[in-house]
Design a protein around this nucleic acid. Structure first.
Lengths: 112, 112
DNA sequence: ATCTATAGTTCAATGGTTCCGAACTATGGA
DNA sequence: TCCATAGTTCGGAACCATTGAACTATAGAT
C-alpha cells in the first residue's frame, strides 16, 4: 500500500513561469504557431485576465485547453495564478515585449 | 515486372509554390518556428539566392535540408527553381511581406 | 558514350509531439 | 457531506520530424 502524494496546481511544474531570457525565439514562435493558441492570445489581449475555459471556444476539450496553456506559459506568454477553483490567466505583455520587441503586436495585427 | 515511372524535381508537388493568400498565419509562424529554418531564412535574406546546401550549416543531412525547404516553400517564404543539378532558392520577400506585413522583419530583428 | 562525382529527392524506420477521453484533484456552495 | 465545476494528469492513438539508404538528375572528365 504505497502512499503517493500528488500535488496539483500551484506546485506543479506546468505552472512555473520562465524568465523570458531563457525563452528562445523559436520557442516563442512555436507557441504562437497554432490557430487555437492565437485565438486564446487574442482573447487575453482584449481583457486583462481570463479563466482557462473563457480563453477558448466552448467546445474545446478541457485537457486540450490545459495543454495549450502549458505551452503558452513555457513560452513566457502567459502567467497563470490559482484563484479558487479557476485559474487566472494574463498575458505577460511587458515581459514578452521586452524580450521580443514588436513580435506580439505584429502577430496580433496579422491575425485577420 | 512493373514499371513505375517516378518524376523527381521540377514536376514534384514539393516544388510547388502556393499563392500567399492560401497561407495561414499559423502556417507561416510554424515555418518560422525552428532554429535551423530561421538560420536558413537569415542566410537567404543576406544574399539574393542560395543553393539548398549553402543555406544550411555544413553538417546538415541532405534529407533534412530537403524537408526544411519543403516547409519553407509551403509557407510561401521561399521560391525554388531548378538550375542544373542545384536548386536556386530565394526569399519571396515581397509576396510574404504583402501577406504578413512586418512579420519577417520583426522575426529577423529578434534573432539575436 | 560512359563513368564518376555532386546536388537534391524520396522512402522507411524510429522517435517525439499533440490531441483528447477518462480518471483524478481541488475548491465552493447547497 | 454531497454535488457541481474548474482544471490537471495519464495513456493511447494519430500525427509529425529526423535521418540513413537508395534513388534520380545533371555536369564534367576521360
Amino acid at each position: 500500500m504505497e502512499m503517493i502524494k500528488r500535488f496539483y496546481m500551484g506546485a506543479m511544474d506546468r505552472l512555473l513561469h520562465p524568465n523570458l531570457k531563457d525563452v528562445s525565439l523559436a520557442a516563442a514562435l512555436h507557441a504562437l504557431a497554432d490557430p487555437l493558441r492565437l485565438e486564446m492570445i487574442q482573447r487575453l489581449s482584449e481583457t486583462d485576465c481570463l479563466s482557462s475555459g473563457a480563453a477558448c471556444p466552448n467546445d474545446t476539450p478541457k485537457s486540450t485547453i490545459s495543454n495549450h496553456f502549458a505551452v503558452l506559459r513555457a513560452a513566457g506568454l502567459v502567467e497563470t495564478t490559482a484563484d479558487g477553483r479557476e485559474r487566472r490567466n494574463r498575458l505577460r505583455r511587458a515581459d514578452f515585449d521586452a524580450r521580443f520587441p514588436g513580435l506580439l503586436d505584429t502577430v496580433l495585427a496579422n491575425r485577420s
